[in-house]
Amino acid sequence: MTAYFIRRFLLIVPTFLGITILIFVITRFVPGGPIERIIAQAQQQALEGGGTAVSETVQRQPLSDDQIDLLKKYYGFDKPVLVSYVTWLGKLVRGDLGISTRYYDPVWEMIRERIPISLYFGLLTLIATYGVCIPLGIAKAIRHKSAFDDASSVLVFVGYAIPGWVAGILMILVFSSHWELFPLGELVGENFETMSLWEKALDLAWHSMLPLMAYLIGAFSFMTFLMKNTLMDNLAADYVRTAMAKGLTFRRAVFGHALRNSLIPIATTFGNNISVILSGSFLVEKVFNIDGMGLLGYESVVERDYPVVMGVLAISSMLFLVGNILSDMCVAAVDPRVKFE
C-alpha cells in the first residue's frame, strides 16, 4: 500500500503540469488583461481631466503603440506563448508566483498574508462541521421519524436551500443591524491592537460567530444526511443484528459496530474538505468583509490581476490533489477491505 501512495504522490507531478497548462492558457487567451485595464484607466483619466470636449480622445485609444509595446514587454506579453509559459512555470516551481499587476506586490506575499485567515475559518468550519454533523446524524438515525428527527430535518433542509452568503446577509441584517448583537463584518475590532490577550480572543470569537455560521450552513445538510443515511443502512445490516444477538446493548451495537462502517463514506469527503479549508468561500468573505484567500481570488479575477489568479489557482489545485490522496488514505485507514495495490 505504501508503494501505491508513493505512486500517487509521483502522479501529482504530471497532473499538476496539466493544470498549469490549463491555467496559463485560460488567463492568456481570455479577453481583457492588465494592458486593457491600464488603457481603460487612461481613458478614465482622460475623461475626468478633459471635461466635456474630450469625446474624440476617449473614442480613440489614449495610449500610443509604443507605450503599449512597452507595457507588453513589462508584462511579458511580447514573448511567444510557449516561452512565457516555460518562464512562468520555472518561476512557479521555484516558488516565485510573480508580481501582482494591480498592487505590484509579490503574489506569494499576498497569498501568505491571507493564509492564516482562511486557515482559521477553514479549520473552525471543518471541526464544527464534523463536530456537529456526525453526532447530529447519529442522533437522527437512532431516532428516525421522531419529532426530533423531523424538526432537525426541516432546519437542515432550510439551511441547505439558503446559500451561505445569503444566510450571511440575513444574519447581518437581523443580528448585527437590527439587534446589534454581532459586528457588521471584519475579522477583528478597530482597537484590536490595544487589547489584552483575553480580550483579543473574545473579540475574535465575537467577530467569527456569524461568518462561521454562514460557512457551516451549506456543508451542514450534506454531511448530516450522509451520516444519518449511512448509519441507518448499517443499523439495518445483518452484522448489527449479529452483534445484538451476541447480547450487546443497542447502544454498544451502534457505537461499537455500526458507527465505524458508517464513517467510511464520511472519510471519502475528508480530503476535499481539507482543500476547501484554504480556499474558503469568496462570497461569504465578501459579505463579511474578511480578507481571505477566497476574496483575493475573486477580486483578482474581476480586476484581471492574472499573476494572482494563477497563483491562487495553482495553490488550490495543488491542495486538491493532495486532498484526494488524503481521502484515499482515510478510507484505507477506516476500511480494512480497501487494498490499494
Binding site: D238, Y239, R241, T242, A243, H257, R260, N261, R337
Partner: peptide, 12 residues
C-alpha cells in the same frame, strides 16, 4: 444467521 457474508462486521 443465514448470510455469513454479511452477518459479520466487515471492519472488525
Amino acid at each position: 444467521f443465514q448470510e455469513p457474508m454479511t452477518a459479520l462486521n466487515p471492519v472488525h
